[in-house]
Design a binder for these strands. Sequence first.
RNA 1: GCCGGAGUAGCUCAGGUGGUUAGAGCGUCGGAAUCAUAAUCCGCAGGUCGGGGGUUCAAGUCCCUCCUCCGGUACCA
Length: 553
Amino acid sequence: MKKSGKYNRILVTAALPYTNGYTHIGHVAGSFLPADMYARYSRLAGYDIIFICGSDEYGTAIALAAIKEGLSTQEIIDKYHFANKKAYEELGLSFDIYSRTSNPTHAKTAQDFFLNLYNKKLLYKKTEKQLYSEKEKRFLADRFVVGTCPICGFEEATGDECENCGSALSPLQLIDPKSKLTGDTPVIKETVSYYFPLKDYQAKLEKWLDSKTDWKPNVINYCKGWFKTGLQDRSITRELEWGVPVPIEGEEGKVIYIWFEAPIGYISMTKELFAQKGEPEKWKEYWQSDDTKLVNFLGKDNIIFHAIFFPAMLMAHSDFVLADNVPANEFMNLEGSKQSKSKGHAILLKDAVEKFNPDSIRYAIASNMPENKDTDFYWVDLQAKNNNELGAILGNFVNRAFVFNEKYFGGKVPVLGSLEEIDKNIINSLKSYVERIASYYENYKFKDAVSETMNLVRDANKYFNDTEPWKVVKEDEARCGTILNICLQLCNTFAILFDPVLPFTSAKILNMLNVSTENLKWDKAYELTLPGGHKLNAPEILFKKIEDHEIEK
RNA sequence: GCCGGAGUAGCUCAGGUGGUUAGAGCGUCGGAAUCAUAAUCCGCAGGUCGGGGGUUCAAGUCCCUCCUCCGGUACCA
């Protein structure tokens, strides 16, 4: 297997989607698509790589979603888990496993992790006063308490902050507190929590992050902000029914805090993956050797958990690898404003894949990925990218080459004759394209990778125009054959280079070329692998035009 | 409020450590071509880089200030 720097294998994760609703394309832009493109590229490049993801299914918000929808928590997570999983498949996300945190393996793994820290006496107990709703029979999370702000008198302050005066509040400070959900007046009740001593890990975390010179500045800056304020210890248990039970006698009724438990899902799902493969010990290779490159893809809302909290947990446990990188994206907004599930202003992935070519969706998102700042998704952009780029540039090149070849060379690859300057130029440019695009993927620059790949297709169209095979065929058939040979070889190159972003199209091109997926190797992308006389399959249209009425809702 | 990010061509976006006439794609307009899903190729035009002030020989880039938008602010995830 190929090495990636000092590493012998790569472990890619995409942030576990929370199962209280349908995934929208903002989630795709934030973590799923970059993770998938990276995973696909890494496979082509020949690395030993696994790609892990699954549904995050516990916690307060699931319990609330259940109340709102009038379903049980199990029904809620089943509803969204299976719907989302299906949509991911239709989008071509190539997870090696897509599991869920409600699986028993996960509970066991999370409990073992908790006990490991507990037995090392790293955790401590603290008694606190919290608001408890008798009617709802549960403690209320800070932001699910509303009341009057003690500072400015604003009547709709929540238990975490007052959005009128901006003060940070605690629920106990609120005057006349009520449950946001039911309007019930809560009572003050004592509860015991287990705390993780995050404060003790600040110095180690700072040192660790200082060594990460190749991380995105947005991630580093975000962490520095937290260090400046000073990290505080965090409660890692909740008085809640819906979660992984705290594995200590006498603590019935407590569950492990979701943000302690969920990232452990990456580990438990890796265990499941190898258990399914009949190699139950092999997950250790990925999590317990220093030569594993762990890369966590996520949106900016998750930075705190993946760059500070989870690494601190891993440091405390000490048996597992820490992330090599945490390439966080910003957000993809919709037509100028933030996507929100609750406000109905969002493009749900399940709806999008039903209506449009998944590769068109992938391309539209990838070419406008929020790598450095929030970006906007517009339906007219999807249409324009599909019609003017995918169809007109890529689809058209493949089509004109195949149709021409069918007409004049009977659908067989013509023999490559002697090369002229113009042929050598484009052939010789391939290797640098392949290397440049690889380097973009290696450095998490997905937008650059995609646009540079399309640039090669532009060069190909120019080559076709400049060599004018429709004229040459009338005077010099052998020369024309050489030109078409090169054009068809280029189609093979596109199939490889576009696989990370357009996997379905890539498979179609390979099928048209009548070559096996064995050819999907990054280093084959600059080689002329099609032998003269090779029989091709009939061409098909790669991208249908999207008409105006199709993007009007 | 505090911390962090963003504001660059009609549109969507690039522009480490300040350095020649500020870039790309798409769109517009003009031309070439007719193999191809009227799809391609070439060329032109288009920007006082959010406002104002400052440092510097030199500022999209550094400093100050103001405006707008976004994220976080530790029990939503």
